[in-house]
Simulated scan of single mutants.
Amino acid sequence: MGLCHAKPRQTLETQLETEPTTHSSTENSSNFPYYSPSPFHNSSAFRNSPANSSVKFAPPSPAHPIRSLLARRHGSVKPNAASIPEGSEFVVGLDKNFGYSKKLLTYYQLGDEVGRGHFGYTCVAKGKKGRMKGQDVAVKVIPKSKMTTVIDTEDTRREVKILRDLTGHDNLVQFYDVFEDQDNVYIVMELCKGGELLDRILARGGTYSEEDAKAVMVQILRFIAYCHLQGVVHRDLKPENFLFISEDEHSLLKAIDFGLSDYVKPDERLNDVVGNAYYVAPEVLHRSYGTEADMWSIGVIAYILLCGNRPFWARTNSGIFRAVVKADPKFAEAPWPSLSTEAVDFVKRLLNKDYRKRLTASQVLSKFQCL
């Protein structure tokens, strides 16, 4: 079960290739301008996916769903799909003292590792004393040895601040505390035991009804609307970064991983290229973007939920970036012709390359309430 996966900063030239698998049919419903994901049957391609490997592979199938990402979570391939954060200049004698409490082991007993990313890992823990006594929690461990630039330390400090500022929303993993020692920073958070949204999509075999898909998307949109109201852009929205708190079918969905998130003012444009290649908005690649970039990422998630495929795909990251900037998502192939006009329009308005014409989270929520 993945929990929190911090992201590294690296140059675009160091990105790795990923592999797609198969696509199949889905079932329609009229309750929601949305559709259900298609099941994935090519298990051999799933198990043997070279996603995130540094080895070159032969050109893959023209279909492009997301099963290789699940393989990464289960340890069959090395981590990182197509994340695209940038590097920075190395600083000698970098100050890695954050001023956080150094009493982690006084308050928590650390347990097994349950998730790993480029820039850290997550383990379970149990409260020993204080307000979390006797409760299970998740602890994100960020090694200071991997903080080699000022940007790295600023990212860690900002991640903690954003979690503190936003915690309390139902669809956000709750922040409890932060500690440090000579070797690591430890972020103590709510433990989500229901697995990733990506796992749930795949486990259900593409059988999401429109009503169930709406329930998922409304939770994501409520969270993003809250973030944007607080001046926060997440910048790494993808199915792996949403967890269910339990295995119950109607469990709450929680957003995680603010390692790439940032504050942005209404009249401000960000210019650093970060995120995941499959979910990155065109304006991010043009180095001028705001909260609208998150809505594009939600549009990609919506597209995947509806048909099981990524809307933009290529064998290399540079190819993906070209497709994001120049290509249009395909809506002529099944299951799109059988979907409602509202469903197709919903996705198209999120995947509009002109961010000024893209729906906002508040607009989408208002539209849902009118259905």
Rank of each mutant, 00 (worst) to 15 (best):
R164D: 07
M189T: 13
H118Y: 08
L94S: 01
T153W: 00
E210C: 14
Y186I: 08
V185S: 03
L191W: 00
V173P: 00
T122H: 03
D181P: 03
T148I: 13
S209T: 15
F119V: 11
L110S: 04
L94R: 01
D165Q: 04
F175D: 03
V124F: 12
G205S: 04
D112C: 13
L104N: 02
M132L: 15
G117A: 13
Y108L: 06
L94E: 00
F175A: 08
T106H: 09
I142S: 05
R200W: 07
R116G: 09
R157F: 12
K96L: 13
V92W: 00
G206M: 10
G206A: 07
V141E: 00
Q109C: 09
L197T: 01
L172G: 06
I201K: 04
L104R: 02
N97P: 00
E159S: 06
K133A: 15
L197R: 03
N171I: 10
G127N: 05
V114D: 01
E113Y: 00
T122A: 15
L191T: 00
D95Y: 01
Q109K: 12
D183R: 11
D183H: 09
Q174W: 02
F175C: 07
L163W: 04
D183E: 14
D212G: 09
Q135N: 08
D152M: 13
K146Y: 08
M147S: 08
C123P: 10
D181W: 04
A125W: 02
Q135H: 07
V141G: 01
G117N: 10
R164A: 13
V173G: 02
G127S: 12
G134A: 14
G195N: 11
L110P: 01
E154V: 08
G99D: 05
L172T: 08
Y121E: 08
K193T: 14
K103L: 11
Y107F: 15
E180C: 06
V160K: 05
G168M: 10
G168D: 10
M147Q: 12
L191Q: 01
R164C: 08
F98P: 03
G194D: 01
L198D: 05
E113L: 10
A203G: 06
T153C: 12
R131S: 14
G93Y: 09
N97F: 12
R204L: 15
V137L: 13
G93K: 11
G206R: 05
Y107S: 14
C192Y: 07
P143A: 14
Y100L: 11
K103T: 09
P143D: 11
C192D: 06
K102L: 06
D152A: 14
V141F: 00
K144L: 11
E196I: 01
R200I: 11
